[in-house]
């Protein structure tokens, strides 16, 4: 392959990934935004907090935090699934924070913030192994627990496989095949600040490393399927009526707006 070919190929991947990134981001933001809108508009006609439930709004906030951060009800129902879930989600957070380095120009932020980004790097590097371990545990649960396998559908596996592809390609880039992270960062900063004229220069183009292309393709696919899949449990958990309602059925009358309109409108 000649130099000219390679240049043309890099130009193609640069355009392809830049456009895919914009499309995926639009789908992710608009899609999740629309789903959240839908969740807020869905009537909850009955007072159904799972008891024992908090009696005040403050209590509900604490309950939701315990649920969202520590997966409290999962802990009570199944310890080993909880362990894998905690390992996976915790590691994913650290890894996401590590990736901030590709989206922040050190000149955009004050130095202490950049120092925090530097500080998280080694933790994120090794969190990737924890994430893979958690994912493999969750995959084993679907494959080897009889009743879990019976209710598992293709999309359940797809999410795990996508995340595994992202994790494995990421680990390979960190420890084995490598990519030019400075060039990739220049590409990413140009994408998020809409500096498309930069893509004319090779220093701002996508580094043509196969692992990077695989990694980003899987990330883009994950962003696109997010609003149409079980990944919506992330915003959805905040809308579980059994968890987000205050147990004040006797103190306060609970009635859905549509019910008032239908049954209690003033007779004319």
């Amino acid at each position: 392959m000649g130099g000219g070919n390679k240049e043309a190929l890099m130009g193609f991947w640069t355009t392809f990934y830049a456009l895919s990134f914009y499309v995926a981001t639009l789908i992710l933001i608009l899609g999740v935004g629309y789903k959240i809108y839908q969740y807020t508009k869905t009537p909850a006609p009955l007072k159904i907090p799972t008891t024992p439930a908090p009696l005040t709004t403050g209590g509900v906030v604490i309950r939701m935090l315990l649920e969202v951060i520590l997966f409290k009800s999962l802990f009570r129902s199944n310890k080993w699934i909880w362990l894998f879930a905690m390992i996976f989600h915790g590691a994913l957070w650290v890894i996401l924070l590590r990736h901030l380095r590709y989206f922040i120009d050190p000149q955009w932020v004050i130095y202490p913030i950049w120092e925090l980004v530097e500080l998280i790097q080694p933790f994120g590097k090794y969190a990737s192994f924890a994430m893979l371990f958690g994912l493999l545990g969750l995959l084993a649960r679907r494959l080897f627990v009889e009743r879990m396998r019976y209710i598992s559908s293709a999309s359940d596996y797809l999410m795990l496989v996508l995340l595994l592809v992202i994790g494995v390609s990421g680990v390979l880039m960190s420890f084995v095949t490598r990519t030019d992270i400075v060039q990739f960062k220049a590409f990413m900063l140009s994408v998020i600040s809409f500096q498309w004229q930069n893509f004319e220069l090779s220093a701002y183009q996508m580094p043509p490393d196969s692992m990077l292309l695989v990694h980003l393709a899987a990330v883009i696919l994950l962003m696109i399927v997010f609003p149409f899949s079980k990944l919506l449990h992330a915003p959805g958990v905040f809308f579980s009526p059994g968890r987000n309602q205050v147990d004040n059925a006797r103190e306060k009358r609970h009635v859905a707006p549509w019910a008032i309109k239908q049954f209690e409108a003033p007779q004319t």
Binding site: D105, Q107, V182, A186, L189, S190, S193, Q195, Q197, N198, E200, L201, A203, Y204
Partner: peptide, 9 residues
């Protein structure tokens, strides 16, 4: 061709 607001080492 300029680098715009994106810095590069």
């Amino acid at each position: 061709v300029t680098s715009g607001s994106v810095t590069i080492p």
